[in-house]
Amino acid sequence: MNRMREAWLGLVIVGAIVVAVVGTLWLEGSSFGQSQRDMEAVFEEVGLIRPGNPIKLRGVEVGRVQEVSVDSGGAVVRLSFRVDEDLVLPEDAVVILSPESMFGDWQAEIVPRSRFPAVAYAQPWEPGVLPGGALPDISELTHTADQIAVNLGVLTDRMGIAFSDETARNVASMIDNIEAVTQRLSALVTQQADSFTGVTERVQMAVDGIGSAADQATATLERVDELLAQDDVASTLEDMAVIAANMRDLSGDLQGTNAEIRQTAARADSAFARADAILTRMAAGEGTMGRVLENEGIADDLQATVVELKVLLTDIRENPRRYFSLSIF
């Protein structure tokens, strides 16, 4: 075998190996030297996700699904995937599985949990493993639509059973009644329309009055505004300040007066207490006044003595010389 044939054979072998290896790696989505990290997420159900399906973040492909396996015990499905090393995950990140199109190709997307809060996420028990959930695929939606169609069929059948001749007559009668009611309502509406016209006119008048009042208020406010804009306002404000100072002084005086009043009241309380004690003793018949009050004879004598004193004083006023002689020298 000559050298050319050997070279051709070697070229064919090397070419095939390169095509197989590089093609496989490229189609598999290998990063060719770019550093990547392995991540995991757990799901209750993974739909049609398969190894090789894309991992997306904000719609951009950042990795590929590596493995899909049922976890030990069969409680969850574990999804292993590889993403770019420097990928920054959103806060409270979860993995959502969803159909990428209607033709069976699925994708896994890393999103914040708040984007799909209603999805039932499987909760991982290991740190670093993301919670995951799957959106319904077209088959589930079709199944739901099928159930709705069945329910509608049942409803239609029931309607067919319920809609007998008598029901039809009742419906016809009801339609006639509705027509009569409609006519009455029409007449009522016509009548109410007239009333409404009158009310509207009065409302219009009221609105005019309110408008006039508003104009006057506006004028008043303008005048107030003008007054506020004049220089007299400053002096008025100064006078107000003086009045306020006087009021403060007056308030101080009143506070002093209040103190004096409180002292006077205290003294009055003391006097009243003593008077009360005296009166109590008098009521008990102690002392001269008590004895006077107790003995009616003494009181009568005192009254007669007072009468006589009054007579004596009257006589002294009328005839002073009878009782007093005044000589200077």
Binding site: A20, L27, R50, G52, D105
Partner: peptide
């Protein structure tokens, strides 16, 4: 489309 459903086993199957 080419990468959508590709699996490395496809190449193994071919070989």
């Amino acid at each position: 489309g080419l990468t959508l459903f590709f699996r490395p086993f496809d190449v193994v199957f071919t070989v």
